[in-house]
Design a protein around this nucleic acid. Structure first.
Lengths: 224, 224
DNA sequence: TAGATTGTTAATCGATTAACAATC
DNA sequence: TAGATTGTTAATCGATTAACAATC
């Protein structure tokens, strides 16, 4: 089966990131092989799920040794299309932008921030790590010249929708919302809401309702 | 049917937040009623889904007017157990903590930050908004005396697992991870990973693979 | 009333798990 | 070989959508 022809379900994509983190950690300890049982334990699913997930990759286990760690990392990275770092711009030059910019690119060298933009003249020209906040007016030009794919909404609630609109009209193909308010994007543009508010609300409900199912996952030790 | 006896599926809980945001916005415009079609459009699902979701609430529509906005907001808030604000502490006193602290409590007055903690003596004593960063040693005492429910991991990658361990041993019942690395919690503790890294990776894949369906939703990496 | 919209049951769709022959 | 682990097909489980009688 030519794995790349099947479109990969969202839950599988998400688990690929967990596999990557786990594989990297185990490789650092000098291991070369891993089997489906170990991976299943780490992500808190069954062996079947792991093997099902692997079937989406152009990749096979080597006999009863299980999966070759380095090879699996490579194939997952390629399948996630992360071989070439993604180019992103940040809309909003405040605290949130600072956190995003300073944390980007650490993991897998997966992102490159092509610019940070804001309308507020008090922020334009200030430094955020190695970037200088630029006027939002310049955004379309940069998005075109640097072939920016992703726009990150990192402004306050009031400016969030305006910023999302600007990012889209500047030409990004996907929008990631970190602002504390929901934003809308036109059809054809990928969108993901990663604001912290829904996460907190969800956790509060779970804690208070006491509706936990299985076990917590077994991810031990700090990484990196 | 006594709605409160059924345990509510995770996707429904997540949509309740979207409904709340939408209802609040529409109420502000002076509207009093809303029907399933409008709600379905906003969240990008069918009318059936909306009506199915409503069936988890102790709440009914009033004839062909649809749902009474203010009442629906109240019932959702109660069902999510958000009538009383959740008490949380933040583990880590850097930039990320600042963003979290400054944004908390805005929306629905749902959270209260009982303290911000760090080990680094350079940070202990500094101000973050209206809070003063305290030494991590004091955390267990505060968690007990203020009945803290949620611990937020907002430290850097290196300290993340240690901080998660401290939060759990201090007595929080749920852990929310915002650090750039995966952390593990023992069974019995609710856990949610809201780090920005998986979200970005997921969006990059979607943009590059060109496999979009309708509207993408708020999907966070959750492990029970 | 007539029309529109609901609540609820049944059908569909998709993802996870179980089972097992094939493989090293 | 014997044992362990895979890849894959089938069964199960859960969530979304369709259908329609009941309701205002």
């Amino acid at each position: 089966m030519i794995a790349s022809l099947k479109s990969i379900p969202r839950p599988v994509i998400r688990r690929f990131h967990e596999y990557l983190a786990c594989l990297e950690r185990i490789r650092m300890r000098g291991r070369r092989w891993i089997n489906s049982r170990e991976l299943a334990d780490v992500i808190g699913m069954t062996r079947s799920t792991v093997r099902q997930d692997v079937s989406y990759l152009d990749f096979s286990a080597t006999g009863r040794n299980g999966y070759e760690i380095e090879m699996m990392e490579y194939v997952i990275t390629r399948t996630l299309r992360l071989e070439v770092p993604a180019i992103a711009v940040i809309g909003g030059g405040g605290e949130l932008a600072r956190v995003l910019a300073l944390n980007s690119g650490r993991r897998f060298r997966a992102f490159e921030i092509a610019g940070i933009f804001d309308w507020r003249s008090s922020l334009v020209g200030t430094r955020v790590g190695k970037w200088v906040v630029r006027d939002s007016e310049c955004m379309p030009k940069i998005v075109r010249s640097r072939k920016v794919e992703i726009g990150i909404v990192a402004s306050n609630a009031e400016a969030a929708q305006t910023m999302a609109n600007l990012l889209v009209s500047a030409g990004v193909r996907g929008v990631l919302n970190f602002s504390p308010t929901p934003v809308a994007v036109p059809p054809g543009i990928s969108f993901l809401d990663a604001s912290m508010v829904p996460a907190l609300l969800e956790l509060v409900h779970e804690v208070r309702a006491g509706t936990r199912k299985k076990k917590a996952s077994v991810e031990l030790g700090a990484r990196q």
